[in-house]
Amino acid sequence: MNRPALEVIEGGKSAGRVWLKELYLKFGGSVYGRCQYLLKDSAKAEDAMQDVFARALLHEREFRGESSPLTWLLKITTHHCLNLLRGDGAKWRVQYARDEQHRGEGHGGPQLLEKRDLVRRALESFDLETQSAVVHYWVDEMTLEEIAVLLGRSVPTIRKRLREFAAATQAEFNEP
């Protein structure tokens, strides 16, 4: 009889379920909401959310050491979703075209896009760091200092990124 070398691994159970439940109740809505906002697809948003919380589990010590766990999670979430979008660039463009057409038919055109929609819509043409800074500034309403700390950059660098984005998109950016 052919008996291949088989290795049994554990599955389905986790000693960390209590902590996971806490994460679910405290942060699930915020993380999933960010994924939906950026990915515009509930299945992909759920997958992305799972990836983010998996990372929290795998980096539990780092996560628990954060002064603001939510801010850390939103940083990871934003970065992960933007990466997914960059890897799926064609669909990103199709999605925007469809959104715009839909709005044009039902809501009076793209001029009625809300600020957050405008921000998201304009992200594609910028680098990942600028994209992250833009989301944290216009969506999370973080300060330049907070974003600088979060992304490990200087305040002038973040200001420059946001200024470039604002100039290109005519987004409102209150210069310091």
């Binding site: 679910y24 109740l25 699930g28 809505g29 909401g33 997958d47 959310m49 799972q50 589990l57």
Partner: peptide, 22 residues
């Protein structure tokens, strides 16, 4: 928003998905 999330994705499904992702 949190309540809608919990309604859309029950904890059991959430936990299983996260554990799979790990």
């Amino acid at each position: 928003q949190q309540q809608r999330f919990e309604g859309a994705i029950p904890f059991e499904r959430f936990a299983a998905g996260v554990e799979r992702a790990t």
